[in-house]
C-alpha cells in the first residue's frame, strides 16, 4: 500500500512538470515516425496524426487537462517559429530553380489560393453551414497563425479556424498523394507546391519526407500562399458580398 502511495506521489509531482509531457510528446512522435517508416511512407500512416492520437488518448485516460499538457509541451510548440524561419535555407538552396519557374509559381500561387478559398466557400454553402463557421473555414489552407489572423479580420472564430486548419493539414498530408497519383502528376516541383499551398506546414512536412525538391517547393508555397491569402481574402471581402 505504501508503494502504491509513493508511485501516486511521483505521478502527482511529474504531471505538474514539463519534463513528463515533453518526453511523452517526443516518445509518441518516435512511435508515429517508426510506424510511418515501417509502412514505407504510406501517407495514411501519418506520423503527426498517430502521435496526436497517442498523446490525446493518454490525456483522456489520465484525466489531465489539455492546458496542463500544453504548459509542458509548449517548448516543442515554441520551435515552430524558428523552424519556419529556418525554411529560408532550403528555399535559398533552390533559388535558381525557383527563378526559372517563377512564372508558373506566380500563376499557380494566385489561382491555387483562389481555388482553395472559393471551393471552401461553395462547399460550405452547399452544406448549409452557419456563416460564422464559413468565415472561420475560408483561410484554412494557410499556416495556423496567418489563418487565425485572417479569420479574426473577417468575422470568423479564430479558435475554430485553428482546429479546421490543423485538420486541413492532416487531410492534405494523408490523402494528397493519392489525388496526385490518380492525376498522374510527375513534376516534383508541382507536387510539392500543391502540398504546401493546400495543406501548409503538415503537408510540407509530408512532402519533405518523400522528396527533396517537392519539400522545398512545399516550403516555398507555404510561405507564399500565407502572404497571398492574407492579401486576397480581405480584398475579396471588399469586392464581393459573401
Amino acid at each position: 500500500m505504501l508503494e502504491k502511495n509513493k508511485l501516486y506521489n511521483i505521478w502527482v509531482y511529474l504531471q505538474a512538470e514539463p519534463l513528463f509531457w515533453l518526453t511523452l510528446t517526443i516518445g509518441a512522435y518516435l512511435v508515429g515516425d517508426y510506424l510511418y517508416k515501417k509502412s514505407k511512407l504510406n501517407p495514411l500512416v501519418n506520423p503527426v496524426a498517430i502521435s496526436i492520437l497517442l498523446v490525446a488518448t493518454i490525456l483522456i485516460l489520465t484525466g489531465v487537462s489539455y492546458e496542463r499538457y500544453f504548459n509542458g509541451a509548449k517548448f516543442i510548440h515554441f520551435m515552430l517559429g524558428p523552424a519556419t524561419v529556418a525554411l529560408a535555407i532550403p528555399i535559398y538552396k533552390q533559388i535558381e530553380l525557383i527563378k526559372k519557374e517563377s512564372g508558373s509559381i506566380f500563376i499557380s500561387l494566385i489561382l491555387g489560393s483562389l481555388f482553395a478559398i472559393f471551393t471552401t466557400y461553395f462547399f460550405a454553402k452547399l452544406m448549409n453551414l452557419d456563416i460564422e463557421i464559413i468565415y472561420s473555414m475560408m483561410p484554412r489552407s494557410v499556416t495556423a497563425p496567418i489563418a487565425m489572423g485572417i479569420s479574426d479580420l473577417i468575422g470568423g472564430v479564430p479558435s475554430l479556424t485553428a482546429i479546421i486548419t490543423i485538420l486541413t493539414g492532416i487531410v492534405g498530408a494523408s490523402f494528397g498523394t493519392f489525388a496526385l497519383d490518380v492525376l498522374r502528376v510527375k513534376d516534383m516541383t508541382a507536387r510539392g507546391f500543391a502540398f504546401g499551398l493546400a495543406s501548409h506546414g503538415i503537408g510540407t512536412a509530408r512532402a519533405m519526407s518523400r522528396d527533396e525538391t517537392a519539400g522545398i517547393f512545399a516550403a516555398l508555397a507555404l510561405g507564399l500562399s500565407g502572404i497571398a491569402t492574407s492579401i486576397l481574402i480581405p480584398l475579396l471581402f471588399k469586392l464581393i458580398n459573401f
Binding site: T119, V185, F195, A198
Partner: peptide, 28 residues
C-alpha cells in the same frame, strides 16, 4: 457540424491539391 465540416475540408483540400499541381505542371 462534424460531418459537414470534415466533408468540406476533405473535398476542398483534395481538389485544391489536384488543381494546383496539374495547373503548375501544365504551365511548366
Amino acid at each position: 457540424n462534424y460531418i459537414e465540416v470534415l466533408g468540406v475540408i476533405f473535398f476542398s483540400t483534395i481538389f485544391t491539391i489536384g488543381f494546383t499541381a496539374v495547373l503548375m505542371e501544365k504551365i511548366n
